[in-house]
Design a protein around this nucleic acid. Structure first.
Lengths: 251, 251
DNA sequence: GGACGCTGTTCGACATTCCGGGACGCTCTC
DNA sequence: GAGAGCGTCCCGGAATGTCGAACAGCGTCC
């Protein structure tokens, strides 16, 4: 997490370093020293970048020390969310689904090999889930993540092993369950990621039939017996299909 | 809107240009040409920056052309929102207020001389307002903006004139109304910004008594007769005071 | 149908720009 | 009151980014 130039960003190192500073602050660095430690930059350099980022509103600097992410990121973050047609067209359908099931509904995409939540409608019963818009989660440990990789059969094993280092057994069983999910057109999560939380999820496809997002319904175990999960499959699939059609999917 | 170096960005011009590219895309530039036009950069330079920004997830580039803001901004945007203690402690109080008044509730701060919305709870009646989290509005044309500048008596006239170029009369009347609002500890908006929308707003103060945010209740005119607006003043002020206390305000 | 004009993209030489050591003032600790 | 730690500023050397030119792929206009 110290060097970034491992990849191949040819020609622009100052911008890269600046973005690295933002990431450091996003990940909890709150003063100049921790920023230099995380980024590997010199004091002067880091300080100069911080100053510029503050001027642009990407960072907020309270009383010299105490950095935090700034208001410009709030503005552009929401703008990014709404520049994407998906959350906009999906919203009403998600609301309808939430109304019907009375549980927490999520919308998510794949980004950088992870689940990225784009929308969330909290359920009315049980404890509220800790998920938030903008949060990231592993692909193979969440129901919605599994729905997102439903079509990538040849990557299942590799993804599972990458996210389960240490205990790399269970891969066989995972692949078997994924086969099953693919046949049903919906994935499930039985408390793998978070104990006590279960969920049912279905993929959303664009005009070309490619999976671009997924919907899920989640609830605590008492509200999610096996029988109800089976009953939710067609409901969640119907919502996903409805969103897919809005994106031009014909199938 | 073409040049940025008008200010005094000491020492770091590449980062500044990169952030300028992001802003260009945020403001609607969707291809390389429009980015170069807005930023004033050369084709090569702009392209290199775009590449790096895409790699970091700040921009999304579909099929070479067609730029949009990327997923990293979504992630950091929400993180920025929740790193700030204000939206977190305010949330439950805003929900309670929304429940009580059944109209749209907003939370906002001042940023870069504008109102920046940090939270919104849509009302249950009338058309939904077009405001969104992350949106910006003028300070002197919105009720919540007026609440935010309630203590800045010496800037009222300048702010008003800055935001009302052309018809710079009415400044006297504006100042007069602000005096009135200050006495009551709450500001109002009578369809000045958006026809048909009225609102009542009150300032939130930190431990030092400085106004750091404001709450507002908005609704369409039929739901907001003058009498109800007067009745809402103590309600909105109570909510604002409750949030202020959570921030350490003693007053 | 051929040439143009417009995209996004790459490369390389020059000089501009940024890096980082060092020094300053400050606050808090011992 | 000495020291360490913080954020902040400056200046010379050199690594860095800039910009022009050129390439390839399309769509378009004559």
């Amino acid at each position: 997490m110290v060097l970034n130039d491992i990849s191949l960003p040819a020609g622009t190192q100052t911008l890269a370093r600046g973005l690295e500073v933002i990431r450091a602050v996003a990940h909890g660095a709150t003063d100049l020293r921790s920023v230099t430690e995380v980024t590997g930059l010199g004091r002067s350099t880091a300080h100069r970048l911080v100053q510029l980022l503050e001027r642009y509103g990407y960072l907020r600097v309270a009383a010299g020390r105490d950095y935090s992410l700034g208001p410009t990121l709030i503005e552009f973050g929401f703008r990014a969310l709404h520049q994407n047609p998906l959350p906009v067209v999906a919203r009403p359908i998600l609301e309808e689904l939430a109304e019907k099931v009375q549980d927490t509904v999520h919308l998510a995409i794949v980004d950088a090999g992870e689940v990225l939540y784009l929308d969330k409608i909290p359920g009315n019963r049980g404890a509220e889930m800790r998920s938030r818009i903008g949060h990231r989660m592993p692909l193979t440990k969440t129901g919605i993540g599994k729905a997102l990789i439903l079509d990538r059969g040849d990557e299942w094993r590799a993804l599972y092993e990458a996210e389960h280092r240490g205990s790399a057994d269970g891969a066989e069983e995972f692949v078997g369950r994924m086969e099953d999910y693919r046949r049903h057109g919906a994935a499930m999560d039985l408390e793998e990621n978070e104990p006590g939380i279960r969920c049912v999820s279905a993929p959303i496809r664009d005009a070309g039939g490619v999976i671009v997002a997924a919907v899920s319904v989640s609830a605590t175990k008492p509200f999610m017996p096996a029988q109800r999960m089976r009953g939710l499959v067609p409901v969640v699939r119907a919502a996903a299909r409805s969103i897919s059609r809005s994106l031009g999917y014909g199938g």
